[in-house]
Design a binder for these strands. Structure first.
Lengths: 120, 120
DNA sequence: AAAACATATTCCGCAATAGGAATATCGTAT
DNA sequence: ATACGATATTCCTATTGCGGAATATGTTTT
C-alpha cells in the first residue's frame, strides 16, 4: 500500500475522527452520525473515500452498512493507525469521540443494530 | 500543532522524500536537487510548503539556504516523523535517497557548502 | 558594476477535494 | 404495493494543491 495514499486519507479531520473511533470496533453509519455529530452525507462520503483507498472495509447487514478497520492491514497502515491513536489521546475532540464510542458500544447489546454481531 | 496540518504535509511524495533525508541532517536546496533528482522549482516550493507549516526550519548561509527538521518538534510531529522513517525503510526510492544522502554527507567536509557547519 | 550562482516567487492551467442540497438506491416493515 | 428507514450518489460551487516556464531576489565573485 502506498504511503502517500494513507496520508491522503489522514489529512482530513473528519476522517481522522472516523478512524479514531473505529479503533474500538466496527460501527454503522447512523452511529457515526451520533458520535461525531456530523450530517449523514458528510460521514457517508468520507467513509466512501476511506473504503476506496482500503483504509476501511464494509459489510452490509440488512439496511445497515457496518464499517470496520481492515482485517489484515499493511505494516504502514498499522504503524500509522497506532501513531494516530497515540496522538489522538491528547486531543479533546478525539477523546470526546472515544468516550461517546464507548457509551454506544456499552448499549449496543440492547439494540437490534448489528455493529458487533459478527467479526468476519 | 494540528495533526491535520502534519498529515497535509505528508501526503505528497516529494515532501516525504525531503523529510526522509532530513532525518540524517540539514541540507541545502542544491543538494536536495541532486539527491532527489528533481527540478529546483519543485524542491523549493515544497520546502516553502513545509516551512509555512513548521515542519522544517531554515537558516541562510551566504547564498545557500540550509533546511533542517525543527529543533523542538511537537510530540505529534516527532511521532509521525519516526513512523515515516520506519515505513520508508522498506521503499526502494526512499532507500536510494537515504543512500545518496549518506554519500553527500560523507563528502561535505571537502566542500565549502555550509550544510553541516552549525547546528543552531 | 557586471556576471555568475543559489534560491524564491509569480503566473498559468489542471486536477482533486470538501461541503451541502437534493435525489436516488436498497432493504425492511406494514 | 406502499411506505419507511438507512445509506449512497449526483450536482453544484469554492478552495486547494501540483507542476512547469519564466522571472525576480539576494549573494558572491570578478
Amino acid at each position: 500500500m502506498d504511503l502517500v495514499r494513507i496520508y491522503e486519507c489522514l489529512c482530513d479531520r473528519t476522517r481522522l475522527r472516523i478512524l479514531n473511533v473505529l479503533g474500538q470496533g466496527p460501527l454503522c453509519v447512523c452511529h457515526f452520525q451520533e458520535i461525531l455529530d456530523e450530517p449523514q452525507v458528510k460521514i457517508s462520503k468520507h467513509l466512501a473515500y476511506l473504503k476506496a483507498r482500503g483504509l476501511v472495509s464494509v459489510r452490509r447487514e440488512g439496511s445497515w452498512m457496518v464499517y470496520r478497520l481492515p482485517a489484515k492491514a499493511s505494516r504502514e497502515l498499522r504503524a500509522n493507525l497506532a501513531c494516530l491513536q497515540d496522538c489522538a489521546a491528547e486531543d479533546p475532540v478525539f477523546r470526546r469521540d472515544a468516550a461517546r464510542m464507548r457509551k454506544v458500544r456499552a448499549r449496543l447489546p440492547g439494540e437490534n443494530c448489528p455493529c458487533e454481531v459478527r467479526t468476519c
